[in-house]
Nucleic acid binder design. Sequence first.
DNA 1: TCGCCCACATTAGCCTATCTTATGCGTGGG
DNA 2: CCCACGCATAAGATAGGCTAATGTGGGCGA
Lengths: 300, 300
Amino acid sequence: MGRRLPPLISLRVFEAVARHLSFTSAADELHVTQAAVSHQVKKLEEWLGITLFLRLNRSIKLTKEGEAYAKPLTSAFDALASATEEILKDNGSQSINIATFDSIAANWLAPRIRKFQEHAPDSAIKIVTQNFYSDFSSNDVDVEIRYGDGNWPNNHVVKIADEEIFPVCSPKLLGRKRKLSNVDDLQDYSLIHDEMVMEWNDWLSEAGGTIMKTAKGLRYNHSHIVIQSAIAGEGMALGRSLLIADDLDKGRLIAPFELKIQSKFSYYLVCPKELADQAWIATFRDWLLEEAANTMAYYG
Amino acid sequence: MGRRLPPLISLRVFEAVARHLSFTSAADELHVTQAAVSHQVKKLEEWLGITLFLRLNRSIKLTKEGEAYAKPLTSAFDALASATEEILKDNGSQSINIATFDSIAANWLAPRIRKFQEHAPDSAIKIVTQNFYSDFSSNDVDVEIRYGDGNWPNNHVVKIADEEIFPVCSPKLLGRKRKLSNVDDLQDYSLIHDEMVMEWNDWLSEAGGTIMKTAKGLRYNHSHIVIQSAIAGEGMALGRSLLIADDLDKGRLIAPFELKIQSKFSYYLVCPKELADQAWIATFRDWLLEEAANTMAYYG
DNA sequence: TCGCCCACATTAGCCTATCTTATGCGTGGG
DNA sequence: CCCACGCATAAGATAGGCTAATGTGGGCGA
């Protein structure tokens, strides 16, 4: 047939820029840097031997040729996308099995997964909560959201969010106060211990507080019970930023200090290497990243 | 917008394979190896999580899904191609200036360039014959077909064809004979010397013949005059495979020996690096390569 | 029936296109 | 007037694509 096509990546980038009339926001859409977009547009212009954009100072404009070129490209890429959607949909009653710990499921994923359903209305999503890492050997788990150090060789691993640790409690615990001024004021409160997070004494030492002799207070091995417990006003807990964002937002919990300690653990999406390139996993990954970024944006 | 598209190269490869129903011939169309095609198809299948082809033993077949997928892809790529053609056409009264030596122009390029016109009907093609290499500093020359050693730094250089050197003459010179059995039989004929090619004695020594004491015969510095001279029956000449293919084909020249010596020079397409990626140059390059391959295929 | 060979698959390694980071540049806006 | 916005450019890292070589399975010819 001998169709001669420009470099396809350049074409796609150009098409995106033409829609946005902005290199920068096209870069956003494509998840690359502005520099990459600039390169690709330049490459296409050189390939064609035709200037496609007029670079004004704080904006760009399509040239006459660029204008005429962009339109059919948009339709063509739409066609590619919808053909792809179509084939995925027909085949797409795939059930997506997502494993994760109780706490992540209860306090973060479950309240948000409905939004993902809307992105991928044709897939049957199943959330499997378990308090161990899956080995993906059976077929009940496709991907897993893990909390840990990210070191899981032989798997496809993508970091979703870092985590910060800081004391939280029910507003009623502080009474009229909203803030505490000194870390050592914590000594006055009963502390809730969470075995999934750092020890209070470790946190205090990093925060420059006084180490406590005795570990007084409640002790749980599930963060979401700790959170429930804190909400109930049973004491001061070490909160995990991702998990308690909603509770802070709703006012069920408050953070009496500005101080936040960086956890050595983060959240990761993990799946078998073979699945890493699958379309729906990429979709899920992108959604997760965006959602986690939104959550973390809460902290400013 | 957030279109999710499969890797575009995979898509394109798949589309080609779907048309050809053959990995191998799609590879041909795309100018890559069969292995590359296999990789890309596999990649797309993994990305989608859907098998697109049934691999039978001596053929392949589209699956139901593949079939449904291929159709819209073909249209979409057609759309991309025709949009590209369109913009190039509108802008395409570019004049293409091709420089080359007299001999190449007269004996090879000129008889074929009409075919290229058909490929690129909207461009004004100009052939500039000159007996020196262009430096591309002025704008009268865009690309050049050169005969030489390929060592021209700072330029984009692509080899078009290698060259073989062997004696040729008019059929009438040999009379009833079509072949000569021994290289030393050449001693009986008057020799035409071509300064653009190797010396007869160099050729004889490589061919295992006897060196001649005196350089008898005519001497020219333009191969195409040498060829004319040989056709006119003035003697035996050292023919350059590419240039004399047509004359051999038409019977105006014959080659009395099977023996061919590999020239240390070849034919190259040369252009300034900045132009190397331009669409029409790539078109011209592909056409040249194919045409040269056709010519050389004459020698089997 | 045997073995060849045709087409696609696979593996390992190279290479180049693409991307990133860092920085430059020109100008309109506060 | 100077900042900051938006694109360009340079240099270096990386991943993805390609190749060459080889493997595999089963028709097809002798």
